[in-house]
Write a protein that binds this DNA or RNA. Structure first.
Length: 298
DNA sequence: GGCCAGGTGTGTT
DNA sequence: AACACACATGGC
């Protein structure tokens, strides 16, 4: 067991862990309350995270407790993107009213840097599912097919997200038993592509955005939206801009009030208007829209 | 019970 | 290029 302390500014831990980019974080207590711990497994490691606010607004200390003995500092800095310069990122967003409103609504929201395979598999399960249900499916996949991970004494057991090998070996039928319906054959086939080495997920970040997207959309059950989620959350392509039902609504209603944009025009707008950190802007618009709609499925 | 959910694949105009 | 629809499952 080990403890790490990261002094940091502008880090909304609850928003970051619950906004729908990752599916394995659970609050220990009221998710809205300050200093509520969050427990999860990422990259095969059990972690408990707590944000302790400091005296000045936005300042605080991010406290991480890990279960094993290894030094997790570098890994956590990477996963949590501790060293990302948030003000610099926000300064690249378009300076318009909807964007300003989203930024002020989601102050401190960050993007994590997740494992590409877990990200890909999770978002294949996400197709036309509510975030709450995605979390349930991912939890069942992990418990049934993933390796147990070390947890501190007294903590409930926890499991790593299954490897592509483990998913491929499970077979389509047992995947379906996790409640994923028609997504089961897609996840199973994609796991086969990854475990056999026919797709090198870790190599994607070295490619251009267009090349990496091309490789991903070739996978069964992966279209442009899921590909962009993997590129943004798992491969570090900050400009990838996932177009989901929420964002399409936002773009149509806020940026194209009753001008009936064609899908092609919407895609072009999304890819160019929001700048080099468009994916971050997307996450702010997405999270703000969901906050406004109601506080379901935290 | 009908509608919608962080879509995708296929088939028609 | 723009639509329509099926595809499982579950929550409201």
């Amino acid at each position: 067991m080990a403890e790490l302390l990261f002094p940091i500014r502008e880090y909304d831990l609850a928003g970051t862990l619950a906004c729908g980019q990752a599916f394995r974080w659970e609050p220990r207590g009221n998710p809205e309350a300050p200093e509520t711990p969050w427990v999860g497994v990422a990259d095969g490691r059990w972690v408990k995270l707590t944000f302790h606010p400091g005296k000045n607004r936005g300042e605080g200390i991010l406290r991480a407790v890990t279960a094993g003995d290894e030094d997790c500092e570098l890994w956590l800095r990477h996963y949590l993107q501790i060293d990302a310069d948030l003000p610099a990122i926000l300064s690249t967003f378009p300076d318009d009213e909807p964007m300003r409103e989203a930024v002020s609504c989601c102050r401190g929201l960050r993007l994590l840097r997740q494992d590409p395979w877990e990200c890909l598999a999770s978002f294949i399960c996400s197709a036309s599912k509510q975030i709450m249900q995605i979390r349930a499916i991912v939890a069942r996949l992990s418990q049934r097919f993933g390796d147990p991970v070390k947890v501190p004494p007294g903590e409930p057991p926890a499991w790593a997200f299954p490897t592509a090998d483990q998913i491929a070996s499970a077979g389509e039928g047992r995947l379906r038993e996790c409640g994923m319906g028609f997504r089961a054959p897609n996840l199973w086939a994609t796991a086969g592509m990854v475990s056999s080495g026919r797709l090198d997920l870790d190599g994607l970040s070295a490619l251009s955005l267009a090349e990496a997207r091309e490789k991903l959309v070739a996978l069964p059950g992966v279209g442009p939206k899921i590909a962009d989620c993997v590129l943004l959350f798992g491969c570090g392509f900050h400009q990838a801009f996932p177009l989901d039902v929420w964002i399409l609504r936002v773009l149509r209603e806020i940026y194209f009030q009753r001008r009936r944009p064609t899908p092609a025009r919407l895609r072009r707008f999304a890819a160019t208007y929001f700048g080099p950190y468009g994916g971050h802007a997307q996450q702010y618009l997405f999270h703000a829209a969901r906050q406004k709609a109601g506080r379901r499925s935290a």
